[in-house]
């Protein structure tokens, strides 16, 4: 079984190249100047201007009002990503807890209502959502950016399935041990869901981090710009004969790539555990 199979390796290497090359090109190209890129195209070799490009991107007061730096955008994206992930976990866990452990009328009907919202992406309700946020005066605020997207059918579904797989005897043992509903959630369910939470955190963080349409609608002030919008902003300078700052766009793209990768690397052990096995 341990025979080396050249063809297998060939396929794996090909796959790896396919995934890694675009990133490598972006990294390499971002270390050249805009002029070089404009005249020579993309690079696969490092250039000498990496440090200054990244420094510029992170600190230059850009945009129309000159209020927003790369660092600022990164922070906004992080707030959005973490806010999304944490908010969605808390909300969907609470919803799933209610659905699984409390007997109330129409519980399964409610669950299926929640579940069908999976079929309705944000874009379908984007106008009414905007209207609501606008009426509440939450445009241009982090609350307005995060809260309307917190309800998560996916998360509720995952947690519901997980809670259902927790043996009933655990609940009964806890009841006999004198743990009320809240204590049971805090002392038993949440510790048991750790891997599950890690998995959902990754998915939702990336989802929040990559939001583009919603932040664009909700925020008009540049201090709320996220990295996703920043990248586009850089390329939008077709004024006169100015060359777009390709290098900066690439640098920003790399910066936008880093945190989700970091999150995945940190959480991946739990992520895999959460999706494949349960801690029982």
């Amino acid at each position: 079984m341990n025979r080396v199979r050249p063809f297998d390796h060939f396929v794996l290497i090909l796959g790896t190249l396919f995934m890694v090359l675009p990133v490598a090109v972006a990294v390499m190209t971002s270390t050249h100047t805009a002029v070089e890129i404009h005249s020579h195209g993309l690079f696969l070799t490092p250039g000498g201007h990496g440090a200054e490009t990244y420094a510029t991107v992170l600190t230059r007061q850009g945009g129309f009002t000159g209020q927003v730096t790369g660092t600022r955008m990164m922070m906004n994206s992080l707030i959005l990503g973490i806010g999304f992930a944490v908010g969605k976990i808390v909300l969907s866990m609470a919803a799933a807890y209610a659905l699984v452990y409390f007997r109330f009328r129409f519980a399964s009907f409610l669950f299926w209502i929640i579940f069908t919202t999976l079929l309705l992406p944000l874009e379908v309700r984007i106008m009414p959502s905007y209207q609501v946020m606008s009426d509440l005066g939450l445009l241009n605020s982090y609350t307005g950016l995060i809260v309307p997207l917190l309800a998560s059918a996916t998360g509720t579904f995952y947690f519901r399935q997980f809670f259902k797989s927790v043996p009933d005897e655990l609940l009964e043992a806890a009841r006999i041990d004198g743990a009320g509903p809240f204590k049971f959630l805090i002392d038993v369910l949440i510790p048991l869901s750790r891997t599950m939470m890690a998995a959902i955190f990754i998915i939702m963080f990336v989802y929040g981090w990559n939001q583009y349409l919603w932040p664009m609608l909700m925020t008009t002030e540049e201090r709320f710009f996220t990295l996703m919008r920043g990248i586009k902003q850089i390329l939008q300078v077709w004024v006169g004969s100015q060359i777009p700052d390709y290098n900066e766009a690439f640098a920003l793209a790399i910066l936008a790539l880093a945190p989700p990768v970091l999150v995945v690397v940190v959480f991946q052990r739990w992520f895999i555990k959460g999706l494949t096995e349960s801690d029982k």
């Binding site: 043996p167 005897e169 655990l170 009964e172 043992a173 806890a174 006999i176 041990d177 004198g178 743990a179 204590k183 002392d187 038993v188 510790p191 048991l192 750790r194 801690d279 029982k280």
Partner: peptide, 26 residues
């Protein structure tokens, strides 16, 4: 009353000590 279950129903994330102490702590 105290109950012993067929599938033990121990809290998987707690140590033996914590398992035994949980009811008393509550």
């Amino acid at each position: 009353i105290a109950m012993v279950f067929q599938n033990y129903a121990l809290y998987p994330h707690m140590t033996v000590r914590e398992n035994m102490a949980y009811g008393l702590k509550n």
